[in-house]
């Protein structure tokens, strides 16, 4: 087999449907486990169902079980939310276009973070997996230890660097720069773990695949791009999901760098609506929260297949 054929074969193998590994009949075991896990999941199920029901109600506070007796479904909170009314009696605080803009901003940050994370950690992961160099172990160790430093402890210093760097740019570029800065700084928090994961993926790929190409005189960078990367696609997909989630839910970085410029993401928007429980109007909050969940759920389910292979790869010792 030449490397290309082998590659195709490998791909076919990956696309095989997940086969149950168990050989004995599992119906009874499944039922027992499903009930057990179901019981453990009950509180979660209840709270999330109540969240969705709240978004279709006009209630003070979140809907609780005792409110269900008088539950009257209504679509009004969704209309209010999308039309910029954060409370039924309030004026329009924002327009429908603006709420779409908020969703778009969230997407930009999330997509940006996942692109940066995937790009940098597939590269670094490859180097850690394939190239012997001095300080390799120390660097890997450092990357792991970095996780001990919380983003919240870093934000002030990250802010300081930002403020100093602003002076070098014309004010007209500040908004764009703020976006880029948020994406890069937020991505950096995810990079250490991602490098570890990607290294594991590369470790799993047999060396012979690239070896042939390199012997033929292809450059290492080309081999990485054209031969190795396609083999770790599941890893890339999964990584991008996790990075996407990180960007999608980030609050503090977005708050510091984007909100002052009147650039909201869903996370800052929702926080503003619910932060003060005394005056919050919950149905609209619930609608926004539900909307927030939908893309991530779709993302997860559609990429489930790929995800299953990621972490195992990352952990391969």
């Amino acid at each position: 087999m030449n490397p290309l054929q082998r590659l195709r074969a490998r791909r076919r193998e990956r696309e095989e449907p997940l086969i149950d590994v168990e050989t004995i009949p599992r119906r009874r075991l499944t039922i027992v486990l499903a009930i057990a896990v179901g019981l453990a999941s009950l509180p979660m199920l209840i709270t999330y169902i109540l969240l969705i029901l709240t978004s279709f109600s006009n209630t003070a506070g979140m809907l609780t079980i005792s409110d269900l007796a008088h539950y009257v479904p209504t679509i009004q909170p969704w209309i209010d939310f999308l039309e910029g009314k954060v409370e039924p009696t309030a004026g329009h605080l924002y327009t429908t276009m603006e709420i779409l803009g908020i969703i778009l901003n969230t997407l930009i940050v999330a997509a940006g973070v996942s692109i940066v994370v995937v790009l940098t950690s597939t590269m670094a992961g490859y180097a850690f997996s394939r190239i012997r160099f001095r300080g390799r172990k120390a660097l890997m160790q450092l990357v792991m230890i970095l996780h001990a430093f919380p983003g919240v402890a870093l934000i002030i210093a990250v802010y300081a660097l930002y403020v100093w760097s602003l002076a070098a740019l014309p004010p007209s570029a500040w908004n764009t720069y703020a976006f880029i800065y948020v994406i890069l700084s937020r991505a950096s928090l995810e990079i250490p773990m991602s490098i570890w994961l990607m290294k594991g993926f590369f470790d799993k790929i047999p060396w012979e695949v690239e070896w042939a190409a390199i012997v033929d005189g292809a450059s290492r960078i080309r081999v990485w791009r054209e031969i190795v990367l396609p083999l770790v696609k599941p890893g890339i997909a999964a990584l991008s999901i996790f990075a996407f989630l990180a960007g999608w839910e980030d609050f503090i970085y977005v708050w510091v760098f984007l909100k002052p410029r009147d650039i909201y993401t869903l996370a800052t928007f929702i926080e503003e609506q619910v932060r003060n429980l005394e005056t919050a109007y919950f149905p609209v909050v619930a609608a926004a929260g539900t909307l927030y969940l939908i893309p991530t759920i779709i993302f997860f389910i559609t990429t489930q297949h790929l995800l299953l292979e990621t972490y195992a790869g990352g952990m391969k010792a």
Binding site: Y162, L166, W174, W255, V256, K259
Partner: peptide, 16 residues
Amino acid sequence: NELFKEFLAAYEQKAN
């Protein structure tokens, strides 16, 4: 309070 914090964080970014 929130707005106060935002004002402070925005000031040196010249976004206040």
